[in-house]
Amino acid sequence: MASKKTAQKTLSLAPVLDLNEATALHEKLLALKGSDIVIDASAVERVGALCVQVLMAGAKTWEEDHLSFTFSKVSDAFEKTTQLIGVEIDHLVAKEI
């Protein structure tokens, strides 16, 4: 899976992932299509359902492309919100060894 380590891109999420950010996030992800991606969600203070949708659509797309889509770090707020709304991200979070 992680065979092409050089092509791996990182995306850091903004602190506020609201209605406005959904479109921006969508564009950022589209631009990174075709590469393995590591998402840094450590700065996220607030996340709305629309941005979770975008991220999950990304995970789905990356999966179809057989590329890796992982969260390197997630903030407490990000983790708790996704849990609250029943969106499972455990399998996407990079496990510490």
Partner: peptide
């Protein structure tokens, strides 16, 4: 949907 067919401000969930 997948990313390219997604309209970021539509409700899917």
């Amino acid at each position: 949907p997948t990313l390219d067919r997604l309209s970021p401000e539509s409700a899917y969930f």
